[in-house]
Protein backbone atom coordinates (compact mmCIF):
# COMPACT_ATOMS: atom_id res chain seq x y z
CA UNK A 1 0.00 0.00 0.00
CA UNK A 2 1.30 3.45 -0.88
CA UNK A 3 1.15 5.97 1.92
CA UNK A 4 0.39 9.46 0.72
CA UNK A 5 -1.01 11.43 3.63
CA UNK A 6 -1.15 11.62 7.41
CA UNK A 7 -4.71 10.30 7.24
CA UNK A 8 -3.59 7.39 5.05
CA UNK A 9 -0.79 6.63 7.50
CA UNK A 10 -3.26 6.67 10.41
CA UNK A 11 -5.55 4.27 8.57
CA UNK A 12 -2.61 2.01 7.77
CA UNK A 13 -1.55 1.95 11.43
CA UNK A 14 -4.95 1.61 13.05
CA UNK A 15 -7.22 -0.53 10.89
CA UNK A 16 -6.34 -3.83 12.53
CA UNK A 17 -7.10 -2.61 16.02
CA UNK A 18 -10.31 -0.94 14.84
CA UNK A 19 -11.38 -4.10 13.04
CA UNK A 20 -10.95 -6.14 16.22
CA UNK A 21 -12.83 -3.55 18.28
CA UNK A 22 -15.59 -3.40 15.64
CA UNK A 23 -16.12 -7.16 15.82
CA UNK A 24 -16.51 -6.89 19.57
CA UNK A 25 -18.78 -3.89 19.13
CA UNK A 26 -21.00 -5.86 16.71
CA UNK A 27 -21.18 -9.10 18.64
CA UNK A 28 -22.00 -7.75 22.10
CA UNK A 29 -25.11 -5.73 21.14
CA UNK A 30 -26.10 -8.61 18.87
CA UNK A 31 -26.14 -10.85 21.92
CA UNK A 32 -28.35 -8.37 23.78
CA UNK A 33 -30.88 -8.39 20.95
CA UNK A 34 -30.71 -12.16 20.69
CA UNK A 35 -31.46 -12.45 24.40
CA UNK A 36 -34.48 -10.16 24.25
CA UNK A 37 -37.08 -12.69 22.94
CA UNK A 38 -36.13 -15.16 25.64
CA UNK A 39 -36.47 -12.48 28.29
CA UNK A 40 -39.52 -10.85 26.77
CA UNK A 41 -41.71 -13.97 26.35
CA UNK A 42 -40.89 -15.68 29.61
CA UNK A 43 -41.81 -14.55 33.06
CA UNK A 44 -38.27 -13.24 33.34
CA UNK A 45 -39.07 -9.87 31.83
CA UNK A 46 -42.06 -9.30 34.03
CA UNK A 47 -39.94 -10.10 37.05
CA UNK A 48 -37.22 -7.74 35.87
CA UNK A 49 -39.74 -4.97 35.26
CA UNK A 50 -41.14 -5.47 38.76
CA UNK A 51 -37.65 -5.41 40.13
CA UNK A 52 -36.90 -2.20 38.26
CA UNK A 53 -40.13 -0.57 39.41
CA UNK A 54 -39.14 -1.22 43.00
CA UNK A 55 -35.70 0.36 42.69
CA UNK A 56 -34.99 3.68 44.36
CA UNK A 57 -34.97 6.54 41.87
CA UNK A 58 -31.26 7.24 42.37
CA UNK A 59 -30.41 3.67 41.54
CA UNK A 60 -32.58 3.68 38.42
CA UNK A 61 -30.98 6.88 37.31
CA UNK A 62 -27.58 5.25 37.35
CA UNK A 63 -28.58 2.90 34.58
CA UNK A 64 -30.40 5.21 32.26
CA UNK A 65 -31.76 8.65 32.27
CA UNK A 66 -34.57 7.92 29.84
CA UNK A 67 -37.00 5.92 31.92
CA UNK A 68 -36.70 2.23 32.51
CA UNK A 69 -39.13 0.34 30.38
CA UNK A 70 -38.25 -3.27 29.66
CA UNK A 71 -41.54 -4.07 27.92
CA UNK A 72 -40.34 -3.06 24.44
CA UNK A 73 -37.20 -3.90 22.54
CA UNK A 74 -36.40 -0.17 22.38
CA UNK A 75 -36.67 0.19 26.13
CA UNK A 76 -34.53 -2.89 26.60
CA UNK A 77 -31.83 -1.57 24.21
CA UNK A 78 -31.93 1.85 25.83
CA UNK A 79 -31.02 0.32 29.14
CA UNK A 80 -28.68 -2.43 28.06
CA UNK A 81 -26.92 -0.85 25.12
CA UNK A 82 -27.34 2.89 24.94
CA UNK A 83 -27.27 3.46 28.68
CA UNK A 84 -23.89 2.02 29.43
CA UNK A 85 -22.12 -0.52 27.20
CA UNK A 86 -22.55 1.49 24.00
CA UNK A 87 -21.01 4.68 25.42
CA UNK A 88 -18.22 2.57 26.88
CA UNK A 89 -17.38 1.06 23.49
CA UNK A 90 -17.54 4.33 21.56
CA UNK A 91 -15.75 6.39 24.21
CA UNK A 92 -13.00 3.79 24.35
CA UNK A 93 -12.26 4.03 20.64
CA UNK A 94 -12.65 7.82 20.47
CA UNK A 95 -10.47 8.49 23.51
CA UNK A 96 -7.81 5.91 22.64
CA UNK A 97 -7.36 7.24 19.12
CA UNK A 98 -7.69 10.91 20.08
CA UNK A 99 -5.05 10.51 22.78
CA UNK A 100 -2.66 8.88 20.32
CA UNK A 101 -3.09 11.48 17.61
CA UNK A 102 -0.17 13.82 18.20
CA UNK A 103 1.01 12.53 21.59
CA UNK A 104 2.06 9.16 20.17
CA UNK A 105 4.21 10.86 17.51
CA UNK A 106 5.93 12.94 20.15
CA UNK A 107 6.31 10.13 22.68
CA UNK A 108 7.79 7.78 20.11
CA UNK A 109 10.06 10.53 18.80
CA UNK A 110 8.77 10.41 15.22
CA UNK A 111 7.29 13.93 15.38
CA UNK A 112 10.64 15.52 14.44
CA UNK A 113 10.87 13.55 11.23
CA UNK A 114 7.20 14.02 10.33
CA UNK A 115 7.15 17.77 10.99
CA UNK A 116 10.39 18.39 9.08
CA UNK A 117 8.26 17.72 6.02
CA UNK A 118 6.48 20.68 4.43
CA UNK A 119 3.20 20.15 6.26
CA UNK A 120 1.52 22.46 8.74
CA UNK A 121 1.13 21.14 12.24
CA UNK A 122 -2.56 22.10 12.15
CA UNK A 123 -2.92 19.96 9.03
CA UNK A 124 -1.42 17.00 10.89
CA UNK A 125 -3.87 17.56 13.76
CA UNK A 126 -6.80 17.80 11.32
CA UNK A 127 -5.91 14.60 9.47
CA UNK A 128 -5.35 12.70 12.70
CA UNK A 129 -8.74 13.99 13.92
CA UNK A 130 -10.32 12.84 10.66
CA UNK A 131 -9.08 9.34 11.43
CA UNK A 132 -10.71 9.53 14.89
CA UNK A 133 -14.02 10.53 13.30
CA UNK A 134 -13.76 7.85 10.64
CA UNK A 135 -12.98 5.01 13.04
CA UNK A 136 -15.58 6.05 15.60
CA UNK A 137 -18.16 6.03 12.81
CA UNK A 138 -16.95 2.59 11.72
CA UNK A 139 -17.38 1.17 15.22
CA UNK A 140 -20.87 2.71 15.50
CA UNK A 141 -21.72 1.19 12.12
CA UNK A 142 -20.47 -2.18 13.37
CA UNK A 143 -22.87 -1.94 16.33
CA UNK A 144 -25.69 -1.29 13.89
CA UNK A 145 -24.73 -4.28 11.75
CA UNK A 146 -24.60 -6.52 14.84
CA UNK A 147 -28.01 -5.32 16.06
CA UNK A 148 -29.52 -5.60 12.59
CA UNK A 149 -28.33 -9.14 12.00
CA UNK A 150 -29.55 -10.24 15.41
CA UNK A 151 -32.92 -8.56 14.76
CA UNK A 152 -33.37 -10.53 11.56
CA UNK A 153 -32.13 -13.83 12.93
CA UNK A 154 -34.11 -13.76 16.16
CA UNK A 155 -37.20 -11.98 14.83
CA UNK A 156 -37.15 -9.04 17.19
CA UNK A 157 -39.40 -6.05 16.40
CA UNK A 158 -37.07 -3.08 16.25
CA UNK A 159 -36.95 0.02 14.08
CA UNK A 160 -33.44 -0.25 12.64
CA UNK A 161 -33.57 3.31 11.29
CA UNK A 162 -34.18 4.51 14.85
CA UNK A 163 -31.24 2.45 16.03
CA UNK A 164 -29.10 4.10 13.34
CA UNK A 165 -30.16 7.57 14.47
CA UNK A 166 -29.38 6.76 18.11
CA UNK A 167 -26.00 5.41 17.04
CA UNK A 168 -25.24 8.69 15.27
CA UNK A 169 -25.81 10.43 18.57
CA UNK A 170 -23.62 7.86 20.32
CA UNK A 171 -20.84 8.20 17.72
CA UNK A 172 -20.89 11.98 18.23
CA UNK A 173 -20.41 11.42 21.96
CA UNK A 174 -17.38 9.24 21.23
CA UNK A 175 -15.99 11.84 18.81
CA UNK A 176 -16.53 14.67 21.29
CA UNK A 177 -14.54 12.93 24.01
CA UNK A 178 -12.03 11.83 21.38
CA UNK A 179 -11.58 15.56 20.79
CA UNK A 180 -10.95 16.12 24.49
CA UNK A 181 -8.29 13.39 24.47
CA UNK A 182 -6.70 14.85 21.34
CA UNK A 183 -6.58 18.30 22.95
CA UNK A 184 -5.00 17.03 26.16
CA UNK A 185 -2.52 15.03 24.10
CA UNK A 186 -1.62 18.12 22.08
CA UNK A 187 -1.04 20.08 25.29
CA UNK A 188 0.88 17.50 27.32
CA UNK A 189 2.41 15.24 24.64
CA UNK A 190 1.56 12.34 26.95
CA UNK A 191 -0.74 9.65 25.65
CA UNK A 192 -1.63 8.00 28.96
CA UNK A 193 -2.31 11.36 30.59
CA UNK A 194 -4.64 12.25 27.73
CA UNK A 195 -6.51 8.96 28.13
CA UNK A 196 -6.75 9.38 31.91
CA UNK A 197 -7.98 12.97 31.83
CA UNK A 198 -10.52 12.42 29.03
CA UNK A 199 -11.83 9.30 30.79
CA UNK A 200 -12.16 11.15 34.08
CA UNK A 201 -14.11 13.93 32.40
CA UNK A 202 -16.37 11.36 30.73
CA UNK A 203 -17.09 9.68 34.07
CA UNK A 204 -17.91 13.02 35.66
CA UNK A 205 -20.15 13.90 32.70
CA UNK A 206 -21.93 10.56 33.03
CA UNK A 207 -22.74 11.11 36.69
CA UNK A 208 -23.73 14.73 36.18
CA UNK A 209 -26.28 13.60 33.61
CA UNK A 210 -27.68 10.72 35.65
CA UNK A 211 -27.54 12.13 39.18
CA UNK A 212 -28.08 15.87 38.75
CA UNK A 213 -31.88 15.46 38.19
CA UNK A 214 -32.14 13.71 41.59
CA UNK A 215 -30.41 16.39 43.61
CA UNK A 216 -32.53 19.33 44.72
CA UNK A 217 -31.36 22.47 42.97
CA UNK A 218 -28.99 20.56 40.70
CA UNK A 219 -31.46 19.48 38.03
CA UNK A 220 -30.49 22.35 35.75
CA UNK A 221 -26.86 21.24 35.75
CA UNK A 222 -27.71 18.22 33.68
CA UNK A 223 -27.57 20.29 30.50
CA UNK A 224 -23.83 20.88 30.87
CA UNK A 225 -23.13 17.16 30.43
CA UNK A 226 -22.29 15.81 26.97
CA UNK A 227 -24.12 12.65 28.07
CA UNK A 228 -27.29 14.70 28.29
CA UNK A 229 -26.74 16.00 24.76
CA UNK A 230 -26.23 12.44 23.65
CA UNK A 231 -29.22 10.69 25.26
CA UNK A 232 -31.32 13.29 27.10
CA UNK A 233 -33.71 13.50 24.17
CA UNK A 234 -33.99 9.68 23.93
CA UNK A 235 -32.84 9.52 20.29
CA UNK A 236 -33.89 5.89 19.96
CA UNK A 237 -37.55 6.95 20.33
CA UNK A 238 -37.56 10.62 19.37
CA UNK A 239 -34.77 10.99 16.81
CA UNK A 240 -32.05 13.63 16.89
CA UNK A 241 -32.51 16.97 18.59
CA UNK A 242 -30.60 19.52 16.46
CA UNK A 243 -29.45 21.58 19.42
CA UNK A 244 -28.01 18.50 21.12
CA UNK A 245 -26.25 17.35 17.95
CA UNK A 246 -24.87 20.82 17.53
CA UNK A 247 -23.60 20.86 21.10
CA UNK A 248 -21.65 17.62 20.58
CA UNK A 249 -20.28 18.77 17.23
CA UNK A 250 -19.29 22.13 18.72
CA UNK A 251 -17.51 20.38 21.60
CA UNK A 252 -15.51 18.25 19.16
CA UNK A 253 -14.81 21.24 16.91
CA UNK A 254 -13.62 23.48 19.74
CA UNK A 255 -11.28 20.78 21.00
CA UNK A 256 -9.88 20.32 17.50
CA UNK A 257 -9.26 24.03 16.95
CA UNK A 258 -7.72 24.44 20.40
CA UNK A 259 -5.49 21.40 19.83
CA UNK A 260 -4.29 22.80 16.49
CA UNK A 261 -3.55 26.21 18.00
CA UNK A 262 -1.70 24.77 21.00
CA UNK A 263 0.33 22.38 18.89
CA UNK A 264 1.26 25.07 16.37
CA UNK A 265 2.64 27.26 19.12
CA UNK A 266 4.68 25.10 21.39
CA UNK A 267 8.03 23.35 21.06
CA UNK A 268 7.87 19.79 19.80
CA UNK A 269 9.22 17.26 22.28
CA UNK A 270 12.26 15.67 20.68
Amino acid sequence: MQLRSVLGKSIHDQWRAVLAWSLFAAVLPGIYVALYPALGTGSMMGTMQQFIDQMPEAFKALFAATGLDMSTAEGFLNIELFGFVGPLMLLAIGIALGASATAAEEESGTADLLLANPIRRSRVVAEKAAAVVLWTAVVAAAVWVGVSLATLVFGVQLRLDHVAVALVSLALLGIAFGGVALLVGAILARRMAAIAIATMLAVVAYFVNTLAPLVTGMAGWRVVSPFYWYIGNDPLRHGLEPAHVLALVAMAGCCLVAAAVVWERRDIHG
Binding site: M1, Q2, L3, R4, S5, V6, G8, K9, H12, D13, S108, G109, T110, D112, L113, N117, P118, I119, G270
Partner: peptide
Protein backbone atom coordinates in the same frame (compact mmCIF):
# COMPACT_ATOMS: atom_id res chain seq x y z
CA UNK B 1 18.13 10.85 17.65
CA UNK B 2 16.52 9.10 14.73
CA UNK B 3 13.18 7.46 15.55
CA UNK B 4 11.31 5.87 12.67
CA UNK B 5 7.88 4.29 12.27
CA UNK B 6 8.33 0.58 12.96
CA UNK B 7 5.29 -0.78 11.19
CA UNK B 8 6.17 0.31 7.66
CA UNK B 9 8.93 -0.68 5.25
CA UNK B 10 11.62 1.80 4.25
CA UNK B 11 10.01 2.01 0.82
CA UNK B 12 6.64 2.91 2.35
CA UNK B 13 8.31 5.55 4.50
CA UNK B 14 10.04 7.09 1.47
CA UNK B 15 6.77 7.12 -0.45
CA UNK B 16 4.93 8.68 2.51
CA UNK B 17 7.44 11.48 3.03
CA UNK B 18 7.92 11.91 -0.72
CA UNK B 19 4.22 12.61 -1.11
CA UNK B 20 4.15 14.94 1.90
Amino acid sequence: ELRLYGSVSALELFSYFGHL
